[in-house]
Simulated scan of single mutants.
Amino acid sequence: MAGQTPDPPPEGRIDGDEPRPLSFRTEVYRGGTAFPRKIQPWGELLYALSGVCEIEVEGRRFLSPPSYGIWIPPGTAHEAWSREDMLYVTTYVSAELCESLPRSVRTLALSPLLKAVLADFAGRGITVPQTAPDRRLARVLVDQIALAPQFDSYLPFTADRLLAGIVDSLSADPGNRLSLAEWARRTGVTERTLSRRWQSAFGISFNEWRLRLKLVRALSLLDAGEKVQSVARSLGYGDASAFIAMFRRMTGASPTTLPQSAARKPGEAGPQITRGRAGCPGGG
């Protein structure tokens, strides 16, 4: 992906350093930043505080929106990019601690406890746990990764050229209200054919996929501090109540009750925030 070239590594960590046995980094990445393909001998948990990261593994694309982490096991080739500014947390886990963790790339629903531990480390500027209490907290985090609900991909993508064109259009404009029947006419197939092809490629229906896309975009906008009414309009909802109903149905919570502590613009974040650099999110 073309884009900005991340800065060289800051002092205190050399690219390729082994975690000891866990380490953490919170960084700002500007929109358009690309992270070249890389293989590492340790695991990574990637988690967006704001923005959305796109990660590609063996031709499959994974989205990392707020509230969902991406687990990358040791020895997995991956590359990534950000289309928008994002504030990102990376946890590096040494290979010996990965035995109980997923053996393939997985989307994880992050627990409040896991996010609280990461927030505590970031707030205190802890990149490598040194004290006995901090080491115990770090091991709790490893346990939480193992216990987290796993998904093959929250928002699946496909290499199918016909479907990829629709995906690109919807990704560029999540408020697009064209129905499946209208997309079928535009692509020259029947609605039934397009529906079957979509279900086969994604494992979910067209409407479900579009709802997930809207949720992903909504989470990013809300974490950036956008008002609920503004988010609703950008996603094609005529009024905020319809958007709130969708959000509550998808998450079990209302967007009006989301905590605002993470609603920060990149570059205005707390301690230990640095700019991105070569490698995938977190710099490892």
Rank of each mutant, 00 (worst) to 15 (best):
S153G: 15
P156F: 00
S23D: 12
R30P: 10
P74T: 01
P174Y: 08
A218L: 12
R25N: 08
V189M: 08
L110Q: 08
L108T: 08
Y154S: 13
N176S: 06
I72R: 03
R185C: 05
G3D: 05
E96D: 15
R212G: 07
R196E: 11
I70A: 03
M1Q: 07
Y92S: 14
N176R: 14
R210P: 01
F206W: 10
A224H: 14
W209L: 04
F202D: 06
E99K: 03
T91E: 08
A232C: 07
S241E: 08
L114W: 05
F121E: 01
L97T: 06
Y47V: 05
P9R: 06
R196Y: 10
A80D: 01
L235S: 12
R212A: 05
D134Q: 15
Q40H: 08
G188I: 07
A201R: 04
K227Y: 09
R212K: 12
T158M: 03
G16D: 02
I126Y: 02
A253G: 01
R186Q: 06
C98F: 10
R196L: 11
L97K: 08
A146K: 09
A95N: 10
L110H: 03
F243M: 01
C98P: 00
F121N: 01
L114P: 01
E11F: 15
D152S: 15
S171W: 14
L113C: 02
R61A: 14
E18I: 04
T257V: 04
M1K: 04
G283Y: 15
L258P: 03
T193Q: 15
A262E: 08
K227Q: 13
A184D: 03
V140Y: 02
S241A: 13
G59F: 02
R20P: 06
P133A: 10
G123S: 10
V231W: 09
G12F: 11
R186G: 05
A184V: 11
G284M: 06
D134M: 03
S82D: 04
G43K: 09
R136A: 12
G32V: 12
D85G: 14
Y88P: 00
D15Q: 10
P266K: 00
T33G: 09
A159Y: 00
D143L: 15
L87Y: 13
F247N: 02
Y88A: 02
L221Q: 13
F24A: 09
R135L: 15
G276A: 14
I273K: 04
P65L: 13
L221P: 04
G3A: 04
F202A: 10
L180M: 13
P255T: 11
F24L: 13
I244C: 10
E18F: 11
E96W: 10
Y47K: 02
S195W: 15
K265F: 08
L87M: 08
E58F: 07
V228A: 13
A132L: 14
L22I: 14
P73L: 09
L147S: 15
K115G: 00
T127Q: 11
V228F: 07
A119M: 03
I55A: 09
S205I: 06
T193M: 08
R139D: 12
V216Q: 06
W209V: 07
A164S: 12
W81V: 08
R139M: 10
L49T: 05
